[in-house]
């Protein structure tokens, strides 16, 4: 797989909700094939306290116009600065990095569960699953209505369900409490999840209890993002593996999660 490192030009930064933004950038060269789950390392310059690049899942890509976009939640100084980028600014990107979600056989029913900025890889995943003729259900959770607004990004790829902790949209509660998971209702062949680790563990547990194959995408802290530093490792049944290289997507049963 060929990777690129290049200055990209910011085309647009828009805020679907006030604490998260979608940034779209134009590549100076042809964009290599991007698989769902791949990420990029973005350099954020001239920001005190930000030294390393930041890894972000790739939201979407348009090969013809050489555009790549990211859905980013403002967490700290780096993400705040990136969210202030102006049209025309140059930003250095390295991608595509990491492995990707594996697709099931055509016709299989899949469930995609996410929350927060963990939903970023689901656009590419949803599109690939749709063209693979899979029946897709999205379940997106958040604290309140504004957190699940982004679920509209997936409406073209399958059924979209939501939960909110305050009940302002969808079912009230956590994703794991959704009526979808009430016994006898779970008729999926595969589950994908990305978001906060406690959520992924809970989803992994449900998947295991129902004998469903489950893949999760981890977001360990990284220094390099391309396999050199060995900082982002996670414990697996085959020892420590790099989340940036052997991951970020892992089968839950490959991880040493006590679920």
């Amino acid at each position: 797989m060929s990777k690129i490192i290049a200055d990209h030009v910011v085309v647009e930064v828009r805020y679907p909700v006030n604490d998260s933004f979608i940034i779209t950038l134009r590549s100076p060269v042809d964009i290599p094939d991007i698989l769902p789950g791949n990420f990029a390392e973005i350099q954020i310059e001239n920001t005190t306290g930000v030294f390393l690049r930041r890894p972000f899942s790739i939201l979407d890509v348009d090969y013809e116009s050489r555009m790549i976009s990211f859905f980013i939640k403002i967490i700290g100084k780096g993400t705040k600065k990136l969210g202030e980028a102006k049209r025309g600014d140059k930003v250095s990107l390295i991608y595509p990095l990491g492995n990707s979600f594996s697709l099931p056989e055509p016709g299989k029913k899949v469930l995609i569960v996410g929350g927060g900025s963990g939903i970023a890889p689901f656009v590419l995943l949803g599109r690939n699953l749709k063209s693979n003729n899979n029946d897709v259900t999205f379940l997106i959770g958040g604290k309140s209505k504004k957190d699940v607004l982004v679920s509209s990004l997936f409406s073209g790829f399958g059924k979209v369900l939501t939960t909110t902790e305050d009940g302002s949209a969808g079912e009230k509660g956590f994703v794991t409490g959704h009526s979808l998971f009430k016994s006898g209702n779970i008729h999926f062949d595969k589950i994908y999840s990305c978001g906060p680790e406690p959520m992924m563990k809970a989803i992994g547990k449900i998947a295991n209890r129902n004998g469903i194959d489950c893949e999760v995408s981890l977001e360990n802290m990284m220094a390099c993002g391309f396999g050199a530093c060995l900082c982002c490792v996670t414990e697996t049944i085959e020892g420590n593996k790099r989340v940036c290289k052997e991951g970020p997507v892992f089968n839950v049963n490959y991880l040493k999660w006590r679920i």
Binding site: F51, C231, C232, V233, T234
Partner: peptide, 23 residues
Amino acid sequence: REGNDYPRMAETASGMLNAVGLQ
């Protein structure tokens, strides 16, 4: 060697700390 447990890295002002432990 398996190296040390995660987390093994911390970003600092103009630098980083690592504790990979010779994996």
